[in-house]
Amino acid sequence: MSTDKRAGRKLVRGQRSTTVNERVSYGLDDAFQLFYNVKKAEGMRERTLADYKAHWRYFREWIDEKYPEVVLNDITPSIAREYYIYMASGRTKYEGVEGREIEGQALSPTTVAIRLRTLRTMFNFWSAERMLDINPVANLKPPKEDEDEIEAFTDEQLRLLLATPDTRTFAGFRDRTLYMLLADSGLRIQEALALTSEHIDIKSRCIHLSAAMNKNRKPRIVPVSADVMRLLFELMTENKAYFPEATHLFITAYGDPLTSDTVRKRLTRYGIEAGIDGDVRVSPHTFRHYFCKTYLLNGGDLFSLQRIVGHSNITTTRKYIQMNDENVRAQHAQFSPIIRLRAGKRR
């Protein structure tokens, strides 16, 4: 009898106290909700949680079309690889319906890599929780990506853009101050828009960002130039005079915190007015690219740049070493041994 009991209670991997014939099957949506709740409890950022939802929705739509009624443990490595190929190759909508077929469009390697990374995070979680027999994405590798040149403003483009806002108005002065800050500090747009007067250290000309404000969850100090600090002080003074209850540094004409969506829309309009739209991507992040590339071109080192902009990995910072042909020519003209030798003879 004891032998029969032991045989009847043999555990299957991924179960706690069920029999062989009572295998637990986790529904896809239930599994995702567990994953989502745990990540939210761990303090994951709202933007990351939103990405989890979006990427899971894309996967579920494909699964519902190709493999309806499946549960979590039904997803095999071959199914995962099929989805991977689908993302990289595109699909044909209304396939088989004559006259309605629409050829699909492949996602970029970067997008495929991001969505694959999200799925890997999910399936690794479920695997660690013993909700899976096999991790279906364990052997999937992200696609190789061409290393594109990082697009940043040129000095002339930045001058044209900074000259566009009408600084006689509050909104124009605020916008120009924001752009000056982004170009001078390399702050991310969300970091800049979250600033209050408490973050500004006028005496030491620094901005103190708390760990909660940083993408890598570490506090950091960002130095700014005297010119930009003067503009920030002027903006704080004006805010206090007209909106004493406002806490944020960058606010609307009604005293509400400025949003990144509003910044992007106004920046697009300024780019068109400045005549640089189409020549360069006019976005808040392009200021960050400008700061990083210019910092290195002017002799700054990688490690101090990494600390200023808050990169968690030096590999990310190292990408800014890339230079276009114009940068290379300018650097050669400045540091060429022969040019320096000829300059010495003229003296």
Rank of each mutant, 00 (worst) to 15 (best):
M1V: 12
L11K: 11
T19Y: 12
N21T: 13
V24K: 11
D29H: 09
A31E: 02
E46K: 11
T48Q: 10
A54L: 13
D64V: 12
T76Q: 04
T76F: 02
P77R: 00
I79S: 03
I85N: 14
K93R: 15
V97E: 12
E103W: 00
P109R: 01
T110D: 11
T111F: 00
L116N: 11
R117E: 15
R120W: 06
R120I: 05
W126D: 02
S127N: 15
A128R: 14
D133Q: 11
K144H: 12
E147F: 08
E149D: 13
I150W: 05
L158D: 04
R159W: 09
L160M: 14
L162I: 05
P165R: 02
P165I: 03
T167M: 06
T169E: 14
A171T: 10
G172Q: 01
G172D: 06
D175L: 01
L178P: 00
Y179K: 00
L182S: 03
R188N: 05
E191V: 00
C206P: 15
I207K: 02
A212E: 15
N214V: 04
K215I: 09
P223C: 04
R230P: 13
L232A: 09
M236A: 12
E245C: 14
A246C: 06
T259A: 03
T262C: 07
V263F: 03
R266H: 07
R266D: 07
R269N: 09
Y270C: 02
G271K: 00
V280I: 10
R288Y: 04
H289P: 11
Y290F: 08
Y295L: 00
Y295E: 02
L305V: 00
S312Q: 07
S312E: 15
N313P: 15
Y320D: 01
I321H: 13
Q322W: 10
M323N: 07
E326P: 10
E326K: 10
E326C: 12
N327A: 04
A330C: 13
F335C: 13
I339Q: 15
